[in-house]
Design a protein around this nucleic acid. Structure first.
Lengths: 125, 125
DNA sequence: ATAAAGCCTCACACCGACGTGAGGGTCAAG
DNA sequence: CTTGACCCTCACGTCGGTGTGAGGCTTTAT
């Protein structure tokens, strides 16, 4: 599939997809015309990339992580390098902490929002 | 208290504190010498600012939120403007979504980390 | 008095993911 | 053949929070 289609399917901009390739996160084949040729698996791969980005990992790190995840990513892994393990452990801790902070922020926001329309309970999501 | 002390107490850089003032998040008094003079409450205020930053709010939004929180922020609020309520609601949804994504990312990371040192359980934080 | 430390105001640098536009090929439809 | 849609590669712009350095005050300690 070509880049436009992948963009449409994933909801990610064309620019971003090119950027992902530039960062080594995607390695599409190339047609004789120079066009990128993405596989069907790349749809999932892009989803995982986005997920990890949203977790605050930078692309260099995502690249290593994805190197440990095979094709559809549903189950298997290769051996993670020891350095990577250390880094990911740090990242893991950061994520846990960040989730806590987000929870706290939510409390703050809900206080404000609660004040907005009186003492009645805020619509729970 | 002067900026250096506040920086030390909050763990936030001097540069950032000046930036917060520039964004209207802090309004320190000024001594005759031009030095900023922060109040004791500002320590809490800075903590809240950091919290909201980590939740992904930009300073313009934080400024409005803090406008609804009185002194020590422990309980009360002023009336939030209706526009602000709408924005915060959006932000709230984003945060909830983001927490979900972080949780998913955690699962991905734990899979990798689980593969790192064999089938034994991962050290639970 | 003199040095050291803390403060001040610009104002430019940086990072990371992405927008955007220029300039130019490729390809299917009319 | 031409139009229009899609693709390509640079390469610079943006945004937000922060680092950093210049140039110059005030205050504190010796």
């Amino acid at each position: 599939m070509r880049i436009g289609e992948l963009a449409e399917r994933t909801g990610v901009s064309i620019r971003s997809l090119r950027y992902y390739e530039e960062q080594g996160l995607l390695k599409p084949a190339r047609g004789a015309n120079g066009y990128r040729d993405f596989s069907a698996e790349d749809v999932n791969r892009v989803a995982r990339i986005q997920l990890l980005y949203s977790a605050g990992l930078r692309s260099s790190c995502i690249s290593e992580v994805l190197g440990c995840v095979s094709g559809d990513g549903s189950e298997p892994y290769a051996e993670p390098a020891p350095d990577l393990v250390a880094e990911l452990t740090t990242v893991r801790e950061r994520i846990v902490r960040q989730m806590g902070e987000l929870g706290d922020s939510l409390v703050v926001l809900d206080r404000i929002l609660g004040a907005a329309h009186g003492p009645a309970g805020v619509g729970r999501s």
